[in-house]
Design a protein around this nucleic acid. Structure first.
Lengths: 281, 281
DNA sequence: AAGGAAGTATCGAACTTCAATACGATCGTG
DNA sequence: CACGATCGTATTGAAGTTCGATACTTCCTT
């Protein structure tokens, strides 16, 4: 997957009306841009970086070219440029891999997001009080992104990393966010979502997801049991802005080996809801 | 700060020998690139993103242009391109701010780094055993980057975020890394480091830093007291590869309000060292 | 009402980028 | 040991993509 239009997107007709550039793929959310203001080489550099999302192993220039959908010359130019800036690094094998500089940018992002700054002390207290993993997620339409994760025990690798995305409709916090939206918008998001289940227990049938969302509207929080990880239960409560638009959610996650579904909900749902309310404006 | 050559870096002489492109600024570590394989527009797009490092607030196109050292037209093109890909977002104020997609890239990076995957369970156990904050940092010559942070109590905002950089010579883990390097290389790193103290207690005098490094060579770990944050003590032990080159370090950090320097060292230095040894190969 | 700043849009020039190609080195295999 | 396949690297002519100045509109501030 990569930019669609292949060859030359902006060629030939110079005096035409503004054409919009098609988005890469996947989630359709970012705004389109007038053709003549669109920088092809920048977009392709992004394609190269994003090519590592599928498999983040070191790649040769040829592999990069294939994965990013550019020719070898472009891979060479882009690769060397990103290398010189630290966004790619040389692997011991000689190939190119993602570079440490990427961490700097995400640090800047985290630092720039006021919600995260406000939420962190609340999350910390919550984790201490609950004794279970506590996450802050950011709502991004069809997916949510975990921005901060405070684990309490040993967790799976992916349960500890910030930046991970999960379909909104399978996650407790995501459903809590959906519960704040008007019906048509929920439908649109469900429509656009990739309906592949993360676990055998994932609820993917729109009707059943809708039932969970209505439940969340009633209760003020949402719950998911083994829908993103077998053996895990989570409750989530949405954080909203002043116009009650969802910004993200607070999650509390625990293990079914230690809790019954009912006990977990009873105990932690109020904590999550209260924390989320404190952060909403 | 941005690319140096201002106007046209690669103009005129087509048939010249390869010239290297000067690095942007700051840390000199990334390799230079042959002029003719260097993508100016990609580099400028990076400049734009990096412009938010100084102050991550939303910026107008004019502010971006100034901060990144490009003209307004370039800021417009780059800004819109990055916006269309989600690496910038529109702020409520109308300006542009960093976008959530940045988190995806750093997630890919974290996921791609085998050390991090191996270290996380070790770190988790260590945090549980120590009951104090436990960090994994990556060695990057003049600076270290915190890649994973497992807090135990309420911490300052910056002590919780991954991606943060700190001068190698002030950090416990950084000094433990330096202790593995040959003398001239240490000198070179100290030379290149920005010697601005992070706190009044920061040791910046090269001779005194060297004393700490020798101490680390003797003990197998390093210690820093209030050098990056007032009231904080930390011990760090280096993780090395098969050739004993430093890859990063394990840090254990606690509060001076709860520990004396000696007690803290005695108790946690062995834990950090053992964990680091387990991860070295 | 004037002045300023912001976002947006346009355009011709030409510099930067493009893609094909070539070269030397390495590697694994027949 | 030679062969073919890939790798990273480097070069080149062509032209398309990018450049930067400029202008327009809108919105605030003074």
């Amino acid at each position: 997957m990569s930019t669609i239009g292949g060859k030359s997107s902006r060629s030939g007709q110079r005096a035409t009306a503004p054409r919009s550039v098609p988005k890469a793929s996947g989630q359709v959310s970012a705004p389109a841009v007038d053709d003549r203001l669109f920088l092809q080489s920048v977009a392709r550099a992004i394609d190269v970086l994003e090519a590592f999302a599928q498999s983040p192993k070191p790649k040769s220039l040829g592999e990069i070219a294939t994965a990013a959908g550019v020719n070898k010359s472009a891979a060479q130019r882009i690769g060397l440029t990103l290398l010189s800036r630290g966004y790619l690094e040389r692997a011991d094998s000689g190939g190119l891999m993602l570079g440490r500089k990427l961490l700097d940018r995400s640090f800047d992002y985290l630092r720039s997001n006021p919600l995260i700054e406000r939420a962190l002390p609340v999350l910390t207290d919550l984790r201490k009080q609950a004794g279970e993993r506590t996450d802050l997620s950011l709502f991004d339409r069809t997916t949510i992104i975990y921005a901060t994760r405070l684990q309490s025990k040993r967790e799976t690798f992916y349960a500890t990393l910030a930046g991970r995305r999960i379909p909104t409709f399978t996650s407790s916090g995501g459903r809590a966010c959906l519960a704040l939206l008007p019906d048509p918008e929920v439908d649109e998001i469900l429509e656009r979502s990739e309906r592949r289940p993360m676990t055998p227990k994932s609820i993917t049938d729109p009707a059943k997801v809708w039932a969970k969302i209505r439940e969340a509207r009633r209760d003020g929080y949402a719950c998911s049991v083994e829908e993103s990880l077998i053996g895990e239960i989570a409750v989530g409560a949405a954080i909203s802005d002043s116009r009650r638009r969802p910004l993200g959610a607070i999650h509390i996650a625990g293990s079914l080996s230690e809790w019954s579904v009912e006990d977990f909900r009873r105990r932690f749902a109020p904590l999550a809801s209260e924390a989320a309310r404190a952060l909403s404006g």
